[in-house]
C-alpha cells in the first residue's frame, strides 16, 4: 500500500481538517523521497481513526505521542508507522487532534495498541491531558515529589517555569 492510498482511505472515511504528505529526501542517492503523512482529525473520531489504521495493517507500530500547548489549544500527535519490515516501504503517519486546554481529555488506545500505555501515561503527566479509560494512571517520568498541577510541556502558568533552577546561580531559598 502506498502513502497516497493510505491518505485516500482516511479521506474517504473521515472528515480531515488537515491532510498532507511531506516528501522528505534524506538519502545519499536522492532517487526517491520518503513520504510522511500528517492528518488532523476531530477528537470524537480519533479512536476510530486509530481503529482504521489497525484495519489497514494488522498491528501498526506505535512510535510515540508528542504534544504541545498553543494558546487555549492542546495539540496531540500520535506517530504510527505502517508496512514495517518491507524494504523501503515503511510509511510514517502522524495523527493529530486538537483539544481544549480547560477540559482536555482523550480516549485511551491501549485496547487497540497495548504498547501505547507508556506514551499515554506520559502525556497525562506532561500535558495534563486526561486519558479516559487508561489502565494505569500513575505518574511515570516525573519525580515522586514533583509538584502537582505543574505540566512540563505546557507554556502557560501551569508550565514548569516557576520551579526551574539555574545551577550557575545560588541556591533558591
Amino acid at each position: 500500500m502506498k502513502a497516497e492510498q493510505v491518505l485516500a482511505s482516511f479521506k474517504k472515511r473521515f472528515k480531515l481538517k488537515e491532510a498532507r504528505i511531506d516528501n522528505v529526501m534524506h538519502r545519499a542517492n536522492r532517487k526517491s523521497a520518503v513520504p510522511r503523512i500528517w492528518i488532523e482529525i476531530g477528537r470524537e473520531e480519533f479512536k476510530e481513526a486509530v481503529g482504521h489504521l489497525c484495519e489497514l495493517h494488522p498491528m501498526p507500530h506505535f512510535a510515540v505521542a508528542s504534544g504541545y500547548q498553543i494558546g487555549e489549544i492542546i495539540e496531540l500527535i500520535y506517530h504510527f508507522s505502517l508496512n514495517y519490515g518491507k524494504p523501503q516501504g515503511e510509511i510514517c503517519i502522524g495523527i493529530k487532534t486538537k483539544l481544549e486546554k480547560g477540559n482536555a481529555s482523550i480516549p485511551t488506545i491501549t485496547g487497540l495498541v497495548p504498547g501505547a500505555l507508556i506514551s499515554e501515561r506520559e502525556i497525562q503527566e506532561m500535558l495534563g491531558v486526561k486519558v479516559e479509560g487508561i489502565p494505569d494512571s500513575r505518574r511515570l517520568f516525573l519525580p515522586k515529589n514533583f509538584p502537582k498541577k505543574v505540566y512540563p510541556w505546557r507554556r502557560d502558568e501551569t508550565g514548569p517555569n516557576k520551579i526551574v533552577r539555574n545551577m550557575h546561580k545560588g541556591e533558591k531559598k
Binding site: F146, P152, M167
Partner: peptide, 18 residues
Amino acid sequence: NSGDVFYESYSLVGPADR
C-alpha cells in the same frame, strides 16, 4: 561539576557538591 548543558532545568538539583 557545573551542570554543563543541563545547567538550567526543572528536575535537577545539582551541582553534586551542594
